[in-house]
């Protein structure tokens, strides 16, 4: 058995645009080369315009997303307000818009919690090399919501098509100040 990060496969990417952010993931769940499910989203919503993408070992994608839902719910009950996107330990890709300042925000983490604040994009998963290439090549500053959607979609689909462990469709969220659009992309089914 290889690295735990390569057992189940999966990819996730977040990008900043003009007054908007986008976050997208693939839908595959596999065991090594065998695909178990083609409907395994890796992006989770924790508050209005706060989204978290998790890649790696599927059991820990489940565990961290559950644990985080619990923690965020406890925060909301205790503080009587929604949580806004700001760094939290133990999560790979975070995207959202700060509800008070209206500022787009993305950040990434490694598995032990080292934070990476980025002005442009964050990638993670088994297709991260490919995503670095496509994002670096396609992304530009101040993209509007529709252009950002096209950019992140093309970047993700092209990247996962060159990774055997990711793909089988994708999910994209475009997050604006007071609107979130979710789109399902079919992509290659192989």
């Amino acid at each position: 058995m290889g690295s735990p990060f390569d057992i189940n496969g999966g990819a996730c990417v977040a990008m900043v645009g003009k007054d908007c952010v986008a976050i997208a993931c693939d839908l595959r769940l596999g065991m090594q080369a065998l695909t178990i499910s083609n409907n395994f989203p890796k992006i989770f919503n924790y508050a209005p315009s706060t989204y978290l993408g998790l890649t790696g070992l599927a059991t820990d994608v489940n565990t961290v997303s559950d644990l985080f839902r619990y923690k965020v719910n406890m925060y909301r009950l205790r503080e009587e307000r929604h949580i806004s996107p700001r760094p939290w330990p133990t999560c790979p890709v975070l995207a959202g818009i700060n509800q008070t300042t209206g500022k787009p925000f993305i950040c990434g983490f490694d598995s032990i919690g080292c934070i990476d604040f980025a002005k442009d994009f964050i990638v993670s998963g088994t297709a991260s090399d490919q995503l670095f290439g496509t994002c670096e090549g396609l992304w530009e500053p101040d993209l509007g919501p529709e252009d950002l959607f096209e950019t992140i979609s093309q970047a993700l689909l092209s990247a996962v098509d060159r990774d055997a462990l990711s793909g089988w469709g994708a999910q994209v969220y475009i997050i604006e100040k007071d609107k979130v659009t979710q789109r399902l992309l079919k992509g290659r089914q192989d």
Binding site: D129, Q154, K186
Partner: peptide
């Protein structure tokens, strides 16, 4: 070394992979 970064970009920009003609149909 950077083949894994460049190749998917080329798929998209040279061979137009994952690109469709706008308004040519649904699904």
């Amino acid at each position: 070394a950077a083949a894994s970064l460049i190749m998917p970009f080329l798929d998209n920009q040279v061979n137009f992979k994952n690109q469709y003609i706008p308004g040519s149909g649904e699904g």
